[in-house]
């Protein structure tokens, strides 16, 4: 993974030039998302796929809002397979990628 993996242009557009608002959004993102990611990973460990799908559904729009485009499709896969209760290789790989990218995004956003 090289370079910046998030893109705040959508958020900046919404903010209408208000950088304070962007900063507070980033703060909120960093406050909630690590916990949600943890929830997905733990639920996956304990084979609670319904929870995996539900939490993925919740963070999906935030991933789009923060322009973390590399895992836009993956988070959909996690949501769908989770809901269907379908544990397969695709799901496993997608979750891994989501974890990797989100953790990197947290790091980059912290140093912003």
């Amino acid at each position: 993974m090289v370079g910046q993996i998030y893109n705040l242009s959508q958020l900046e557009e919404l903010a209408g030039g208000n950088t304070e608002f962007v900063n507070s959004m980033v703060e909120t993102f960093l406050e909630h998302t690590p916990g949600q990611l943890e929830e997905i990973l733990q639920a996956y460990e304990s084979l609670d796929l319904a929870t995996v799908g539900a939490v993925a559904h919740k963070i999906k729009p935030n991933i789009e809002l923060f322009g973390i485009n590399a895992i836009k499709q993956d988070i959909r896969v996690v949501e769908e397979k989770g809901k269907q209760g379908l544990k397969d290789k695709d799901l496993e790989e997608s979750i891994k990628r989501v974890e990797l990218h989100l953790k990197e995004a947290f790091n980059q956003l912290l140093q912003r």
Binding site: L11, L14, M25, F29, K58, L65
Partner: peptide, 13 residues
């Protein structure tokens, strides 16, 4: 919306 982040963005916008 229970997604705080999203609600916040919408409200601001």
């Amino acid at each position: 919306d229970d997604n705080e982040l999203y609600a916040k963005a919408s409200q601001h916008h």
